[in-house]
Computed example of a mutant assay.
Amino acid sequence: MTILVFGRNGQVATELRAQAEVTAIGHAEADLMTEGAAEAAIARHAPTVVINAAAWTAVDKAEAEEAAAMRLNADAPAEMAAACAARGIPFCHVSTDYVFAGTGETPWCEDDPVAPPNAYGRTKLAGERAVIAAGGNAAILRTSWVFSAHGANFVKTMLRLSETRDSLTVVADQVGGPTPAADIAATLLRMAQAMCDGQNGGLYHYAGAPMVSWADFARAIFARAGRNVTVEDIPTAAYPTPAARPLNSRLDCSRLERDFGIAAPHWKTGLDKVLAQLGG
C-alpha cells in the first residue's frame, strides 16, 4: 500500500506521518486552491490509496471567505475523488459534525438530516456530496473536537491560558466528543488498508468517548495536567462568535465499529498522551 496524503502539517496529517510511511504533500507541492493541482499530484505520485487531511478549518474566517473555504473543502476533494475513481483506487476523506444542525441531545447518525449552521459546515457538506458523487470507493470520516500536541486546538489553548490565569469561563452548553488526532490517523490507516484489500468505504462517524461539554473538558485538562485553574460555566450566548456553533456535536459511532471493527476512542487516554508529549 502506497499512501498519498494531502496535507502535511495539520493535526491529522502530522499524526499520519508519524504512524506510517506516507507521502504527505503540502501547499508548496500541490496548491489545492488551484484547479487541477490535486489531480496532477495523484497522477505524479501514482499511489494505491489517497487520504485527504487538508482542509479549511478556520470556522469563523469562513463566514467572510466562504468561496475560498468552498474551494479547499469541496472543490479540491471533488477533484481528488474523481481522480481516484478514474484510477480505481480508494479515497479517504475527513469531514465534520458541523454538517448537522447541532440541535437536540441525541447523537447524530450518519443518515440523519443535515443542516449546517455556518459557512464552514456548508463547505464541508458540499465536499462530502462531491466525494460521493464521484462514484469511486470512498470513505468519509466525520469527526469532532480534534486535539493533539500539534497545531492550534482547545487543549493547547487551555494550557496556554493556564500559564497566566487561575480562573476561566468556558462554554458549558456545547456537548461533543473530543477526538485525539492520533486516533483519527490510526483509523484512517486501518480503513485505507481494508479498502485496498477490497472492502467498500462509506459514510462514518468517529469521535471520542464519553461525551462531555467544553467546560468539563477544560476541567479534565487542568486536572490531568496538574494545573490549579477554576472553570466557570457560561452559555454559548455569553461567548458570541462570527460563526454559529452547534450545541449538540454528539456522534453515533456504531456503524464504524460494525463495518471496520473500530471503536470510539477514549479521549482521556488520548489526552494523557498529548499532555505527556507537551511535557504536562
Results as ranks from 00 to 15, higher is better:
22 V>K: 01
57 T>H: 14
156 K>L: 06
32 L>V: 01
7 G>T: 10
95 S>K: 07
201 G>Y: 04
8 R>W: 03
176 G>C: 03
244 A>H: 13
12 V>Y: 07
187 T>V: 11
36 G>M: 11
1 M>S: 13
274 V>H: 03
124 K>Q: 08
131 V>N: 08
31 D>I: 01
39 E>S: 15
102 G>M: 01
27 H>R: 15
90 P>M: 11
39 E>M: 12
65 E>V: 06
200 N>K: 15
214 W>I: 00
279 G>L: 06
279 G>K: 05
163 E>K: 03
244 A>V: 15
239 Y>R: 09
210 P>Y: 05
123 T>R: 13
204 Y>H: 02
17 R>Y: 05
195 M>I: 04
173 D>P: 00
121 G>K: 08
5 V>P: 04
70 M>N: 12
77 P>V: 09
99 V>P: 09
104 G>Y: 01
31 D>N: 10
10 G>W: 07
135 G>A: 07
124 K>R: 10
238 A>N: 01
65 E>H: 14
198 G>V: 05
213 S>W: 00
19 Q>D: 04
167 S>T: 13
64 A>E: 13
188 L>G: 04
34 T>L: 15
135 G>T: 06
148 S>L: 04
58 A>G: 08
147 F>R: 05
199 Q>G: 01
120 Y>P: 11
140 I>Y: 03
84 C>I: 07
145 W>K: 03
271 L>K: 13
8 R>C: 12
69 A>M: 05
262 I>V: 14
235 P>C: 07
114 V>Q: 14
29 E>L: 13
177 G>E: 00
66 E>W: 12
30 A>I: 04
177 G>V: 02
215 A>K: 06
180 P>Y: 11
62 A>P: 00
259 D>L: 05
98 Y>F: 14
195 M>S: 07
43 A>R: 14
210 P>M: 10
24 A>P: 06
21 E>L: 06
